[in-house]
Structure formats: structure tokens, C-alpha cells
Design a protein around this nucleic acid. Structure first.
Lengths: 152, 152
DNA sequence: GAGAATAGCTCACTCAGTGAGATAAATTGG
DNA sequence: CCAATTTATCTCACTGAGTGAGCTATTCTC
């Protein structure tokens, strides 16, 4: 190797630039969630839990307390507390699981969905409004998929 | 309007799909930061602070406690505590600000940079390794820029 | 069916983050 | 140029989110 290839490589620098932009987006989404938490009086963790529960519903996955704990990277006890708070606020219902009577099925209430839509709706609309040609969208989609795979 | 245009619009659905992938990336980056925190014995907030400080350095911005508080969306007191912890761990140095003697200049130590590189280096390499044609990279770059603008 | 594993919970505790308020330096108005 | 105000940060006392230990109920395994 006659010279430092990597850091001076313009291809590499350009790729790094994309990663920085992705991180910037991640940061801003996090701050937006934090702002939502403040305006609704919820805690940051509670908001993250709600989002994960909504994602589970969308994906058709049965959300249990244990599953949620894994998603949040927290202990089951802390997750129990989160669920209690969300339940008290009327955002989540704890239903019996049919398959396992030790477990519970967590269901997000309509009011919580409405609340989230009220706050994130406009943001989501702006994001969706970013127009791309179908071919461009395919390129972006492939890139995001590759990134997701690289992280996971 | 004869039918629900928006939800059934395939363009819209495809755009939404991209947003979901972005959110997935944001979530995974967050979890990676959490894992880094656990392995290093730092707190999640401390890691976020370190990352922001490194970003500031890269951007040539002078990082003060007040600036950091804003970046973290936290009070100045909590930020003082974060800085104390990072200082005690030897990850940050508090230097005098030349322009304002009330304020401090926060500098990340080399050891912290090394530590971060050790953990995030491999991840970053995998992300950079996602190969794109220059034209594709331009498309992705434009999309990410547009998304960033839409969030901010 | 006995023993092990699993899902979730309660209890007691720790410490991260907040509100109130202090200090010190910079800025502004007369 | 000095008093009043604002700004940047810090200390103190407190709250409550998250953890570890350990319990109960149910399911799995042999």
C-alpha cells in the first residue's frame, strides 16, 4: 500500500456524507418524538413504546409486554411501568392473550392513534410529499435496505 | 372527490414505505448507541452528548455546556451533570472559552474518540461499504436532503 | 405429573433529570 | 462609566424512571 487509500478516497468521503445525513435524520426524528412527549405530557420512553406498538399493529405482530421490553431495550419491570403509565393515560389497553394466559396483548387505543396523527401527521405528510421518479425511488429504497441490513 | 385518493394512491404508499425504512434506520442507530452505552458503562444520554460533541468538532462549532443542553433537549443542570460524568470518565475536557469567561469550551479527549471508533468503526465501515454509482448517490443525497429539510 | 423454563409482576433502591435559586461575567441604558 | 439587566453555568434538594432481587402463575419437557 503506497498511500492511505481510505480516508482520501473521494468515493469513501461521499459515502460517509450520506451516512452523516442519515444520522442527522435519525437525530431529528428523535427530537421530534421528544417534543411530542413534552407537549402531551408523556415521557420519552412512553412515546417510543407507543410508536413501537403502532408499528407492531401495522405489521400484524402480537405485542406483549415482553416483546415491548425487547423493542425498548429495557427490563421487563421498567416496561411494566411504561404500560401502567400508558394504561392510566388511556392510550393502551391490556387484553388477555388467547395463546398464553401468562401473557397480555397490548392494544393501542383510538385516542392514542388520533393524538399521534395530530402531531406526526403534518410531518409525515411533508415527508411523503418528497417527490421522486419511480426509478429514483427504487434506488433510494435499495440504499435504505442495504443500510438497514448493514446496521442489523 | 369520488374516492379516498390518498391512502389508495400507490405513489403515496411507496413514499410511505421509504419513510418507514428511514424510521427503522433511526431506531437501529438508537439501539446501537444504547448498546455502546451498556458496553462502556456510560449512560445513553452521555453517549448522545459525546456524539454531538464530536459532530461539533467536525463542523468546527465551539461546543459549550449551553449549546450541548440545546442539542440534547435537556436543562442546563442535567447537562452540567452529563459533563461532570464525561469529565470524570476522562472523555471530555472543560477548557476556558476565550471569548466569554462565563462559558466553557468542551473538548472530546482522544481516548473517547478511540473508544467510539472501536465500537462504531466496524458499523461505519459496513455503512460506507454500501456501493452506489455516483449518479445513484446523487439521487439518494437529494432525497436525504429533502427529508432533512422536511423534518427541520 | 414433576421439574425446569418462561411471562409478568411487586418491592426497595439508585441515580438521572428538574425546579429553585446562587454566582459571576457580559451587555445595555442613562 | 457605573447600575441594572441579561446571560452562562453551577449547586442543592427533590422526584420519579429504571434496575436487581425475588415472587406467582402458566407453559413446556421428559
Amino acid at each position: 500500500m503506497r498511500e492511505r487509500v481510505m480516508p482520501s478516497d473521494p468515493e469513501r468521503a461521499a459515502a460517509l456524507e450520506l451516512v452523516h445525513r442519515l444520522r442527522e435524520i435519525a437525530l431529528r426524528l428523535e427530537l421530534a418524538a421528544g417534543e411530542f412527549a413534552r407537549t402531551t405530557g408523556l415521557h420519552g420512553t412512553d412515546v417510543r413504546a407507543l410508536i413501537r406498538l403502532l408499528d407492531a399493529e401495522r405489521a400484524g405482530v402480537e405485542a406483549t409486554p415482553g416483546w415491548l421490553a425487547g423493542q425498548l431495550g429495557m427490563t421487563s419491570q421498567a416496561t411494566t411501568a411504561v404500560i401502567h403509565r400508558l394504561e392510566a393515560a388511556g392510550h393502551v389497553e391490556r387484553l388477555r392473550s388467547r395463546s398464553d394466559r401468562r401473557s397480555a396483548r397490548l392494544q393501542v387505543s383510538d385516542s392514542a392513534v388520533d393524538l399521534g396523527w395530530q402531531f406526526f401527521g403534518p410531518l409525515l405528510e411533508r415527508l411523503i410529499a418528497v417527490q421522486l421518479e419511480p426509478s429514483e425511488r427504487a434506488v433510494v429504497g435499495r440504499y435504505l435496505d442495504a443500510v438497514n441490513e448493514a446496521i442489523g
